[in-house]
Computed example of a mutant assay.
Amino acid sequence: MSDVTIYHNPACGTSRNALALIRHAGIEPIVIEYLRTPPSKEVLRAIVQATGQPVRALLREKGTPYAELGLGDPAWSDEQLLEFIVQHPVLMNRPVVVTPLGTALCRPSEAVLALLPVRKLPAFRKEDGELVEDDGIRRGGQA
């Protein structure tokens, strides 16, 4: 079983590139297509806690009902925001990657390198042709 999990949206280029980078490292992750299999509120809470970021960092505005739901209002509590993500999984920003080295929202996709145990990957070309060169330094995500 893999120690790497990616909360993935196959329609998202950043998510596809992060998944490809993980596989480029020789790791076959657990892939959770969170729009098909949304995480529970408890799982979301654990993800947020593991990233060390506020719940709002996990919210996606573009292409979601964020504005229609009034989620820009700072009065919403973290618990309420988590409930909105449960009800509307498209609000979850992606990709989120969980490894033994940490948990992070991997935007840009090469942020996943900090979470991988493999040292100094060969160069990788993203879908758009951008070259990603791994410096081999693992800064780690939030554990």
Rank of each mutant, 00 (worst) to 15 (best):
D3W: 11
V4Q: 14
T5F: 09
T5S: 10
T5I: 04
I6A: 09
I6C: 10
H8A: 04
N9R: 12
A11P: 04
A11N: 06
R16Y: 15
R16S: 14
N17F: 10
N17H: 08
A18R: 12
A18T: 14
R23H: 13
E28L: 04
I32R: 08
L35Y: 00
L35W: 01
L35I: 02
P39I: 03
K41D: 14
E42I: 06
E42D: 15
I47D: 15
I47L: 15
V48N: 15
Q49S: 14
Q49V: 10
T51Q: 10
P54K: 04
P54E: 12
P54W: 08
R56N: 07
L59H: 07
E61R: 13
G63N: 04
G63L: 01
T64S: 07
T64C: 04
Y66E: 05
E68W: 02
L69M: 03
L69G: 07
L71A: 08
G72P: 06
G72S: 06
D73Y: 06
A75V: 02
W76V: 01
D78A: 03
E79V: 00
L82P: 05
L82F: 02
E83W: 03
F84H: 13
I85F: 08
I85G: 07
Q87H: 11
H88E: 01
V90Y: 02
N93C: 03
P95V: 01
P95R: 10
P95N: 07
V96S: 15
V97E: 13
T99Q: 13
L101Q: 13
T103F: 10
A104S: 15
A104I: 05
C106Q: 07
R107G: 05
R107D: 08
P108G: 06
E110A: 09
V112E: 13
V112R: 10
L115R: 12
V118I: 02
K120M: 00
E130S: 11
V132K: 10
V132E: 15
V132A: 13
E133S: 11
D135Q: 02
D135K: 00
G136W: 06
R138W: 00
G140S: 05
G141D: 08
